[in-house]
Structures are given as structure tokens and as C-alpha cells.
Simulated scan of single mutants.
Amino acid sequence: MLTPRKMQYDKAGPKVAEALNKRHFEAYYCPDRAAAVEKVLELISLEDTVSWGGTLTVDELGLKDLLRARGQKLIDRDIAQSNEERVELMRQGLLADTFLTSSNAVTADGQLFNIDGNGNRVAAFCFGPKQVIVVAGMNKVVPDMDAAYSRVRSYTAPGVVQRFPAAKTPCNVTGLCADCMGPDSSCCHFVHTRLCRPAKRIKVVLVGEELGL
């Protein structure tokens, strides 16, 4: 990462965490991946049942393997043998003690914005798991909600769809959002989390590196 960008992240990160705390999230700024991993594991009790939504950030940090290695009880949709089993595990995950995910965008004044296709990931933000741990690289921080919407529709969603070659969406062909309404659209559910209630149910770990899309 360019040194000036890293300097920017280290200056802005604590301020964004403070803004999140004012909105009743429990937020932390970690300067690098190692510190972020340590913080996430610290926030998860060994007695917790843990699940997750689709998230490149959690994969990049190796958190799933670390949880498996320490014997954590998991609701692991990645081991499903069929789509039906996968969907059932996704449903069970919404009643986990801890749900791991990222956020598509975080505003400088402490709000979260997410778009989802199936809806299980964004559902967890609203209700279900006892706690949600959001891990987000500082590359996802934007000035305001207008910028959040623009970033996710024009950049994040078309990038995510590239992971699924069979998805029949315009952005999978052109790389550009066409505001499609087809059955394979990944932009079905839009969730804007303005405040956290109950307070501190959603923990946000900001990372001073670029992670995910």
C-alpha cells in the first residue's frame, strides 16, 4: 500500500470509529490485519456458536480457519453438500451467537450501507444473531450516504458478481451496473443501518488496510 494512503487511514480510522460509537455501535480501529484478527477473536467467546455471510474480507483475514483451529462451534454453510442444505445452514446462521460479515460501505459519520442478493447477510444486521461483528477495510469508508450508494452500485456489486460466472446479469458481461431487474440480480435488498439497537450489538472493526471490494 502507498505510504500516504496508509497515513491517511491511520488518521481517519479512529475518527470514523468514534463516529460509529456515537451511533451506539461498538467500534475499534486496528492499524493492520494482525491487530484486526486479534480483536475479532477477542470479541468472540469460546462458547459462542459462530456463522457468517458471504464476505471476501473475512476470507482474506483467514478468520474461518482460525476459528476452526481453536475448536469454535460453527454453522458452516461452506460445507453444505447441496443448495438446499446451504440455504438451511444460512437460515440457522441467523440465530448464531456471533455472525461475521463485512460492510459494503461505511460513512465517515458512522453509518453502514449494504446491498445483498439473497438477503441473509443484511438480515443479520437488523435482527437475529446475538452479536454481529463487521470487519471492514478503510477502503470502504466514504463521505456520506450518497457516496455509499454510488460506491456499492457502481463498484462493489459488479465486482462481487464476477465471483459467480453463471450469474446472468448485465454487469457480469460488461462490468457496469445496468440497474437490472433479472432473477439473478445481486442488488435485491438495500439496508441502511443508521443506528445500532440494541446498543453495541453490532461491533465494527475498521482495518487500516484495503480489504474486500
Rank of each mutant, 00 (worst) to 15 (best):
S103L: 01
P165W: 02
D116S: 15
L112C: 12
R151T: 07
Q81G: 11
R153Y: 11
G93W: 00
A69H: 13
V132M: 15
S82G: 11
F99R: 03
A96V: 00
R70A: 08
R151K: 13
N118V: 14
I79P: 03
L112Y: 04
Q92L: 06
A148S: 01
P143L: 06
V122T: 15
M145F: 04
A108V: 05
R153T: 13
F99H: 00
D144A: 12
N120I: 12
M138W: 04
K64E: 06
Y149M: 15
G117W: 14
D76S: 05
A96I: 08
L95W: 13
A96G: 01
D78M: 00
L63M: 11
D116T: 10
S102M: 10
Q92I: 08
K73R: 15
R163L: 07
K73S: 13
E88P: 08
R153S: 15
Y155N: 09
S103N: 07
L63W: 03
T98D: 05
Q72P: 02
R153C: 06
F164L: 05
Q162P: 11
S82I: 02
V152W: 00
A124F: 02
N120F: 12
S150Q: 06
Y149D: 10
S103Y: 02
D78C: 00
P165N: 11
A136N: 09
G110R: 01
D116P: 03
N104E: 06
I115L: 11
D144F: 09
L95C: 09
N139F: 06
L74S: 08
Q162A: 13
L89K: 06
R77W: 09
V160T: 11
V142D: 01
G117H: 05
R77A: 01
N104G: 04
G93Q: 00
A124V: 11
M90D: 08
E85T: 04
V87R: 12
N104M: 07
S82K: 00
R70G: 14
S154D: 15
A96C: 01
A123Y: 10
P165H: 12
N83G: 13
G71M: 00
K130F: 15
Q131F: 14
T107G: 05
V141D: 00
S150K: 14
Q92A: 14
K64S: 09
